[in-house]
Nucleic acid binder design. Structure first.
Lengths: 217, 217
DNA sequence: ACACAAGCGGATCGATCTCCTCCACTTATC
DNA sequence: GATAAGTGGAGGAGATCGATCCGCTTGTGT
């Protein structure tokens, strides 16, 4: 990234840049965002020096990588919005976005924490939330989604299932679907008890994410 | 703890031992198990040396503190088992044991991870699980709890709500009840869809807890 | 009141980690 | 083949954490 409009990189340097990005993608996905530059460099088979010459910081790599993921997620939401069955649209989006989080632990951490630059992540979350908002609204209007939940609830529930993934993926990688199903049963309209209290305001949700940091080791 | 049957500690030493335990209780509850001996000593207002003289390791302090918590939890379960309404018994136990986890982060981490000695924790978990087993069985028999869930599910669900606490407690300390209610609605018999797959075997549950480590910072 | 064992504090050492720089060496390019 | 661009990775700086050690203080029994 750094400065554009410079002369292009030498061929081998460009090759190393790609190798670094590819290695970072892999390492972020399996071990999360809290890996050192040394880890990334080692995975790419280049020296640390090269890593730092190409990217000023880990944040810069993250930025270069995760725009793509956000677009993917927006596309999922867009497709879900076209499902004639509002409930099925919402739940399938729920499931597929969770699948993304399962496959990419770094992305999950990026969604729910602020280990990297506040501002760009806030913007990207806002984009996603508005798309989901529509999904939720539609499912509620159709009468399938209980009326006392909102988008913030969906976000928190998504976090919950993500936590289950952390907890059980070593033992049974697909188990999270079981608990997702349970949650969805609870989300259906006509469920037993009205929910106590209210969901979070957008600002609160943002602050929750700022306070939370992904697990260690 | 160390060796018993020694001559009793000098009065000031005993006083410091208590101060250390008290401080450790506090620090574990608010910041989790991953605090250093220095942290505990500082909170107790004694030198690190004193801390190490009284307790060989942090694990020893943990052991000294958390037996009590386990008993509390067993007592909760016992009381719940006497509720004439099986469903209400189970849910109230669920809620009050979660309340314990909210109030003591160290205890929560101890329940779901293996940051400290495997063996004693395994034993203590076994004790609790058998008590809960009975609660679940009874609620299922009464027809209130859906028949496709088991104790391992309750454990995982408990973990999920605990994760929500981590995520939202700074912003709205009671919010977890909202999601607990949602889960309970999903747990009621007669819910929409049968659950996919099966719950975890006891050994798998144990391994999940071994793999998982509580969050950093 | 006094001697001395018991206890105390916290400076300090060693072991890890991570970030990041620097420079002697290699290599692509013109 | 000259030279600018790029490379690797040793190593310094700075944090943390566990654990120890020793000069000083204090409780205790007589």
């Amino acid at each position: 990234m750094a400065v554009e409009s410079e002369r292009p990189l030498r061929a081998d340097a460009e090759r190393n840049r790609c190798r670094l990005l590819e290695a970072a993608r892999e390492v972020f996905a399996t071990r999360g965002l809290e890996v050192s530059m040394d880890d990334i460099a080692r995975a790419a088979g280049v020296g640390v020096g090269t890593a730092y010459r190409r990217f000023r910081s880990r944040e810069e790599i993250v930025a270069a990588l995760f725009d793509e993921r956000i677009s993917q997620m927006e596309e999922l939401a867009a497709r879900a919005a076209q499902d004639p069955d509002a409930w099925r649209g919402m739940t399938s989006f729920f499931e597929s976005s969770l699948q993304m989080q399962v496959e990419d632990r770094g992305f999950k951490e990026l969604l729910f924490s602020s280990v990297d630059g506040r501002e760009r992540i806030t913007r990207m979350r806002a984009r996603i939330i508005t798309v989901i908002e529509a999904l939720v609204q539609r499912a509620r209007d159709s009468g399938d989604l209980r009326s006392d939940v909102d988008v913030s609830d969906l976000t928190v529930l998504s976090f919950m299932v993500g936590a289950v993934v952390d907890f059980t993926s070593e033992v049974d990688p697909g188990l999270w679907r079981r608990y997702l199903a349970l949650l969805l049963d609870g989300l259906r309209a006509g469920s037993a008890s009205p929910l106590p209290g209210a969901g979070l305001e957008p600002a609160q949700l943002e602050r929750a994410m700022e306070c939370w940091h992904p697990r260690h080791h």
